[in-house]
């Protein structure tokens, strides 16, 4: 290697360290500092009402039914939305794949990208509410006489409004992902091979298409589930006050005028961070077991 080439390739080392320091400072440090602050606050070591080390806020948080209900609700809804999105997308790809590649259809599938969660929640509120477009349609068809007869779909105890909105926001992304992976994996060839070997359509669907796609899509699906777990704007507008999804619950506790709630809010934030860390760690562990030499997208 010539001297110029050596000089040009060696410059990476010090700049690599500098880039790493910059990344740690601006990309990781703020979150780490925030979490350390939250842990210290939750242990009563800092904050307006601190009286020295105490575990009382942890006790309050861990024995709070609202927190566990909130965590269960958030995780359950996130898993449900991801799962339903995936199976709906799979069904659509199997049935409509050639049509999904048309220019106009592809454009339509990308449209929800332009819809922020806050606006999506607003539209859902206007459509699913007691005086919303669906209720008006039902009234025009003579199905209901008063707004009370229309089922409660917004701020309802079963989170139907939140589920529908999150599903409509996420389904197109999952559909595009499944469609892309279907083509990349060359599933059409596998289908021909399985059919030649005597597999029927149900077997091909379950043991070829589903088996290949679930393996390829799972990492992204897990990440989507993590995002949905922390969804804020949609449950804020369409969900209930209690049980609330975890981001809404923590935000409520921070925003209350009762200062005694603030350490509990920090405790909940630490617990939320713990769940996220566990999910991300599982995701990485699983990924490196499957393909040790590659990084996920």
């Amino acid at each position: 290697m010539s001297a110029t080439a050596q000089k040009n390739t060696q410059y990476r080392r010090p700049q690599g360290h500098a880039a790493l320091v910059f990344f740690l400072l601006l990309g990781v440090m703020p979150l780490a500092a925030g979490l350390v602050y939250a842990v210290l606050y939750s242990l009563g070591l800092i904050g307006y009402l601190n009286t020295g080390f105490t575990l009382q806020y942890w006790y309050i948080a861990l024995t709070s039914k609202a927190l566990w209900a909130s965590l269960t609700l958030s995780l359950g809804l996130a898993v449900l939305v991801s799962t339903v999105s995936f199976f709906l997308a799979l069904r659509c790809v199997i049935a409509l794949r050639p049509h999904l590649k048309q220019r106009g259809v592809r454009f339509s599938l990308h449209l929800p990208l332009a819809l922020p969660p806050l606006v999506a929640a607003f539209v859902s509120f206007q459509w699913l509410g007691g005086t919303g477009i669906l209720a008006r349609g039902a009234h025009a068809l003579g199905l209901i006489q008063t707004t009370d007869s229309f089922p409660v779909l917004v701020n309802d105890p079963y989170y139907i409004g939140v589920f529908v909105t999150l599903l409509l926001l996420n389904f197109p992304f999952i559909l595009l992902l499944v469609l892309d992976q279907y083509d990349r994996a060359g599933i059409t060839e596998y289908i021909h091979l399985a059919a030649t070997l005597g597999g029927n359509s149900a077997q091909i669907r379950r043991k070829v298409i589903l088996a290949i796609l679930i393996h390829r899509v799972l990492p992204t699906l897990v990440l989507y589930t993590v995002f949905l777990f922390g969804a804020f704007e949609v449950p804020l507008l369409l969900g209930q006050q209690s049980p609330a999804m975890i981001s809404v619950l923590i935000s409520q506790k921070f925003s209350k005028f009762n200062l005694a709630d603030v350490p509990v809010a920090y405790t909940c934030a630490v617990l939320y961070a713990g769940v996220i860390l566990v999910l991300i760690a599982c995701f990485w562990r699983w990924h490196f077991r499957q393909s040790p030499n590659t990084e996920p997208a």
């Binding site: 934030a269 961070a273 996220i276």
Partner: peptide, 25 residues
């Protein structure tokens, strides 16, 4: 690889909870 693992954390965190955690600073 460590940098990549760490980059996923703020990305996966709910922005509103993140904001409450760093608001003090």
């Amino acid at each position: 690889r460590w940098a990549l693992v760490l980059a996923y954390l703020p990305y996966a965190f709910s922005p509103v909870i993140y904001a409450h955690c760093i608001k003090f600073f």
